[in-house]
Amino acid sequence: MKILPFAASVIALSACVFASSSVMAQGAQPAAAPIKNIVLVHGAWVDGAGWKPVYDILTKDGYHVTMVQEPLTSLDDDVAATKRVIDLQDGPIILVAHSYGGSVITEAGVDPKVAGLVYVAAHAPAVGEDESDLGKNMPSYTSKQPGAIMKTDDGYTYLNPADFPKDFAADLPLKQAQFEAQSQILTAAKVFSAPMTVAAWTTKPSWGIVAGDDKIINPDLERFYYQRAHSHTTVLAGASHSVYESRPKEVAAVIEDAAKHAQQ
């Protein structure tokens, strides 16, 4: 009879050791592997070719990178184009956007394949908001410049080619900026006033890059977006709106950070 209390103590001690071992084993679980699929979304007036410097770095580092070519005809069309590319990916992705593309990924980013969002000098409106109204509250240099934003008779916008180099791409080589000024994709004016129906950044982790010398989007508006979204924020002093082309190493580093930590 005296042995029974001793046996009970041994059993209790074994249970504690087992529980502790289980907790330690859980704590020792390896971190989730980095996400390998990166989808890059361009903004208004340009196309996916501008992502090539970032693409080159990411692919060299072993990532599978795909660019979306949006038609820039409506927000719905651009979200649909992004979703087609998302559907082609074979696992979780990091969805990255520049400029107006931020509105696109704010909508498309609710897709379950999207593990994290990266906003590169990009808009990030909330549900019911649109970037046009938000821009009026914190106007950009370009929006206050008469004649900088042109509009066709059928409602498509573009930047005055004479203003494009200094407004959009001041830190790019002049000849490159002039070429981009003449190769703009005219963008439907209505894309800028389309309100969000969802906001992926409310449920997905996000990263944001502020272009410190951005003339297309007010840098303070970028800071507002990223602070509200609780984004991991990087400020690149002196960078123009073309930060994804002029500062590809820093932009790629933020994207890779998102890929490594979005699922942790």
Rank of each mutant, 00 (worst) to 15 (best):
M138W: 08
V10A: 15
P195V: 02
E70H: 01
A108D: 11
M196R: 07
P112F: 09
I94S: 09
Q264N: 13
D220P: 00
A121L: 03
G101L: 09
K52F: 09
S143T: 13
D111N: 13
I209K: 04
I217N: 12
G62Y: 04
Y226A: 03
P139S: 07
M1K: 09
S193E: 14
G62P: 08
V118P: 03
G102N: 10
P71V: 06
Y156H: 14
L75R: 12
A189K: 13
S21Y: 13
H230P: 01
S183I: 02
A189G: 14
L236T: 01
G147R: 11
E256R: 02
Q69H: 14
A124Y: 02
V198L: 06
I105T: 06
V10R: 08
Y226F: 14
D77V: 07
T197Q: 15
Q182M: 13
A108I: 09
D61K: 13
G135D: 10
Y141V: 15
F192L: 09
A252W: 02
K204C: 05
A49T: 14
S140C: 06
Q29K: 14
A126C: 03
N218A: 09
G155W: 12
D130N: 15
P71S: 15
D76E: 15
I149L: 15
Y244W: 12
I105L: 11
S183M: 11
G135K: 05
R84N: 13
V120S: 05
L58P: 06
R223A: 12
